[in-house]
């Protein structure tokens, strides 16, 4: 096996062992979206939102949001173990190892977060399917879900890992995660369609990566005839399709990846 792959495998294996030894961390990552799913759907059961959203029920309407939120939260917390490694001196152990690239530390962490996110999302999909929420977009729709979650995961993992190298202590990162999480979830279409929101909010909502991920998921979840180019929501700047949402998310990843690479490379040497 290629040496670069060997080191990424070893680094990721360590994180998977952590997940195996501390299942509560994985479970707690599931609990919040599940609470949101079931409590919100109960609270808004008789609201007119379900009809306007075109998904049949509020539970169905917020299921894509719960999936994106799961990926988003897991990714945003991804930097915390790295900060612990920094604080405890374990990162130094990795930095003196003859790694082909020190960025392998980042790739391995990102891979672990993505796999765990997929597993958590799979649990949510199974539970919501049992409750009557089906993915109507077929196999290709399923692939769009995986791709979208991957883009969200990568975007926020990169952000979190960059912060992990910039900040000094883990509680600083935890504070930032807490500050970012709620506004990101609520200033998005995860819980309500954009047309319900005041005009001033449509810009931040439309540019929010959570919206850019929720809307394509909603399209492939509820529209059996979905297509790549069809308008799925109207942003103040353009009519957005599955393709354009994914392209913007991809560009966001490239931009943050470019900025992060410089910071992380400088910190890792």
């Amino acid at each position: 096996m290629n040496e670069r792959l060997m080191e990424i495998r070893a680094l990721a294996w360590r994180w998977f062992l952590h997940s195996k030894r501390t299942p509560m961390v994985v479970i707690s990552g599931l609990i919040q979206p599940l609470i949101w799913l079931f409590l919100f759907s109960a609270v808004f059961k008789n609201s007119p939102m379900r009809e306007l959203a075109g998904s049949g029920s509020y539970l169905a309407f917020i299921t894509p949001g719960a999936l994106v939120f799961t990926a988003f939260t897991a990714a945003l917390n991804g930097g915390i173990p790295i900060l612990f490694d920094r604080e405890l001196g374990f990162l130094d152990r990795l930095l003196v190892a003859p790694l082909i690239s020190r960025l392998s530390i980042i790739w391995a962490t990102g891979f672990h977060i993505f796999v765990m996110t997929l597993l958590q999302c799979l649990v949510i999909i199974v539970l919501t399917t049992i409750m009557g929420v089906y993915i109507k977009g077929g196999l290709l729709g399923g692939m769009v879900i995986v791709l979208t979650l991957a883009l969200v995961s990568l975007l926020f993992t990169t952000l979190s890992l960059t912060l992990a190298f910039v900040l000094r202590r883990h509680f600083e990162l935890i504070s930032i995660v807490m500050i970012i999480s709620l506004p990101m979830a609520f200033i998005s279409t995860a819980f309500a369609p954009v047309k319900y929101m005041p005009a001033w909010l449509t810009w931040p909502v439309s540019l929010n990566p959570v919206t850019l991920a929720v809307e394509p998921l909603r399209a492939v979840f509820f529209d059996s005839g979905w297509s790549w180019g069809a308008t799925i929501y109207q942003a103040p700047f353009a009519d957005m399709s599955v393709t354009s949402c994914l392209v913007v998310l991809g560009l966001g990843n490239l931009l943050i990846g470019y900025l992060a690479r410089g910071v992380i490379a400088r910190k890792l040497g």
């Binding site: 080191e7 070893a10 294996w13 360590r14 190892a97 003859p98």
Partner: peptide, 11 residues
């Protein structure tokens, strides 16, 4: 030890 072997490219 296995982790350390991995990051040092030892099978």
């Amino acid at each position: 030890m296995r982790f350390c072997a991995g990051v040092k490219h030892l099978h």
